[in-house]
Design a protein around this nucleic acid. Structure first.
Length: 586
RNA sequence: GCGUCUGUAGCUUAGUUGGAUAGAGCAUCAGUUUCCGAAACUGAAGGUCACGGGUUCAAUUCCUGUCAGGCGCGCCA
């Protein structure tokens, strides 16, 4: 429709110029937009105002010249000039009704398009360290990433959803050592647990599994372990060194293959928990990509070689540094430590190179806002390796602060006092959690009130939308109770009877749905969809209260029922994209 | 301190390639069930768009300065 109107304006402009009514200037990009206020019709263009300066003609006059030259079609009912020179289009009643037939014909596919032209996009999201269960902070990324993926798929992109597993490096080793120490406890040793180890209850659970699977296979006495290891300072000032010493000692005592058994069990247990948690939450993945595999396959070393060849690495204090300051970073970054181990950053360089080599047209990373300082160095490394870094888009998600009533929920990993995503889901449900996470724009700091999400009224938008759907289902159950049926053919042929303002509003909203999807997907703004569904549901509830659908006037009744079926379809389609259940009754 | 994101009604917030009277919801106040589920609807009130400059036909939107807040600034990941 927009395209149709643009084309008509273009034709009008060209003919006006030919007739000499408007000077022959460069025609700016013609923009046609939905009006914000329905008194201005359905669509508006500001073309006259943008032309005013170059032609030095008053915009109102330009507008009237254009309007006169626009070809007549049966799609457009009338064209007005308003304000400082807006050209407002009102669509014909008949053309507005088409959307209902279109929805009924395409059903679940209504709203889908091929804007993406089948281009491949990789979306990496959450990628939390596999050192513990996901907490509520990860929830927002999980929802944001999965809905963006769904949106992109809906408008014709091929989407690859990926979780990057940081299964190498210190943190996972600390987890392994934490589990091992708890395991020794289970074996009967009395271990003083280091404060810099992971102290959550889940660590003990894994230790029990370890013991159940392997018995005392990994048992060593306290004496054997703690000899030659400096004591941990009570103020935790040497915690890092202490825990690293412990890791080394464990590897020594246990040997590589035994240590690996513990390590793998920890990792697999946690990963299984995370993947179950995410899929129960409605976020799904195509691939779980292992960081360790990059190191073991030599991909990391290859990437480092590339950087060396590009002459952007130098040695200092026994470590290898990447000159990222040459590419706008704040400081240079270490890629190989003085102990010969590669850093997380080195893996990430290899990982991003790998992503690019896999041939994705676009690569999207969804990161917590705490990683924003990390973007310049990754882009720098890609540029050095002759990759087009504009193919990488990093979307930052701000933190959500949890409230319970008016009180902030304090979270601290160390004390083990954090709310897990699973607990959140059990407390308020998947649907409410997803809706709340996504209803605000991602770059907005967000307050998430747990009490609010538990309300079962319109304070809680997820119920509001789900109720609209259930209410429509209810109407049809009621219809059946009265031994009546919905007749689509009669409904469709009588759509012209839908003349009430509530009905016109709904028709306009339904027609906007595909535009909303396209906009939300391309701009990576899933909250737009959430707001749209809330608005559509609101318009429906208003309509429901103002008019009856099951009435004696059969033709009007069938037309209304047909409209309402279309509304239900669009709500269902939208909720599906959001990963939220559609309910037939509540 | 430097970098970065944010600041819209009492609260939570839409408003995005600059457009017409800045939209919602909650809370407040006043109403709506013999009628498809009131988990709903109608109406009222509530705003110097943090503050000051600039750019132009037009600024909540772009630029700049100030103030306030979040986050980052490890040979952690």
């Amino acid at each position: 429709m927009k395209y149709h109107l643009k084309k008509n304006i273009e034709i009008a402009l060209i003919s006006a110029i030919k007739q000499g009514k408007i000077p022959n200037v460069n025609i700016p990009k013609i923009r046609v937009e939905r009006t914000k206020n329905k008194v201005y019709g359905d669509f508006a263009s500001n073309i006259a105002m943008t032309l005013a300066k170059t032609t030095s003609i008053n915009p109102f006059k330009i507008a009237s010249i254009i309007v006169k030259a626009i070809p007549k079609t049966d799609v457009i009912d009338k064209i007005d000039i308003a304000g400082q020179g807006f050209i407002n289009f009102t669509l014909s009643s008949d053309s507005k009704l088409q959307v209902v037939k279109c929805i009924l014909a395409t059903k679940d596919n209504f709203g889908k398009s091929y804007v993406g032209k089948g281009k491949c996009i990789q979306v990496e999201f959450v990628s939390a360290n596999p050192t513990g269960p996901l907490h509520v902070g990860h929830g927002r990324s999980a929802v944001y990433g999965s809905i963006i993926s769904n949106l992109l798929e809906t408008i014709g992109f091929k989407v690859h959803r990926e979780y990057y597993v940081n299964d190498s490096g210190r943190q996972v080793n600390i987890l392994a050592i934490s589990v091992w120490l708890r395991y020794l406890d289970v074996c009967g040793e009395n271990i003083i647990f280091p404060s810099s180890a992971y102290r959550g209850k889940y660590v003990i659970d894994i230790a029990k599994i370890l013991h159940a699977n392997y018995g005392d296979e990994f048992f060593y006495s306290t004496l054997e372990i703690f000899t030659d290891i400096s004591f941990e300072q009570p103020d935790d000032s040497n915690g890092d060194v202490y825990i690293d010493d412990l890791i080394e000692k464990a590897k020594q005592l246990l040997g590589q293959s035994e240590y690996r058994k513990i390590f793998d069990l920890c990792l697999n247990t946690i990963l299984l928990d995370i993947s179950d948690d995410l899929s129960d939450f409605g976020s799904y993945y195509d691939e779980w990509f292992s960081e360790l595999s990059l190191i073991e396959s030599g991909a990391v070393n290859k990437a480092i070689k590339k950087l060396k060849c590009a002459n952007v690495l130098y040695q200092k204090d026994g470590a290898w540094w990447f000159k990222s300051t040459d590419f706008g970073d704040e400081k240079d970054r270490v890629v190989v430590r003085d102990n010969g181990q590669t850093t997380y950053f080195a893996s990430d360089i290899a990982y991003h190179l790998n992503k690019f080599q896999r041939g994705f047209d676009e690569v999207i990373n969804i990161w917590g806002s705490d990683h924003h300082g990390y973007i310049p160095r990754i882009k720098a490394s890609l540029a050095v390796m002759n990759q087009d870094e504009s193919r990488l888009k990093v979307l930052l998600v701000q933190f959500a602060v949890l409230y319970r009533g008016g009180d902030k929920v304090v979270m601290s990993t160390r004390s083990g006092e954090f709310v897990t995503l699973r607990e959140l889901r059990e407390e308020i449900g998947k649907d409410a959690a997803r809706f709340f996470y996504v209803m605000h724009s991602a770059e907005q700091h967000m307050d998430f009130d747990l009490e609010l999400t538990k309300l079962k009224n319109k304070d809680n938008p997820v119920y509001y939308v789900q109720y609209a759907h259930a209410r429509i289902c209810r109407v049809f159950r009621r219809l059946a109770d009265s031994d009546l049926i919905w007749n689509r053919t009669i409904g469709e042929t009588n759509l012209g009877k839908l003349v009430e303002s509530h009905e016109r509003d709904l028709l306009t909203m339904l027609a906007r749905y595909p535009e909303i999807l396209e906009f939300a997907a391309l701009k990576h703004m899933p909250h737009i969809l959430a707001h749209f569904l809330t608005d559509l549901s609101g318009a429906f509830h208003t309509y429901y209260n103002a008019h009856n659908f099951i009435i004696n006037d059969t033709k009007l009744s069938q037309a209304r029922l047909t409209l309402v079926v279309a509304v239900r379809q669009v709500i269902a389609n939208g909720l599906t994209i959001m990963g939220i259940s559609t309910l037939e009754s509540m």
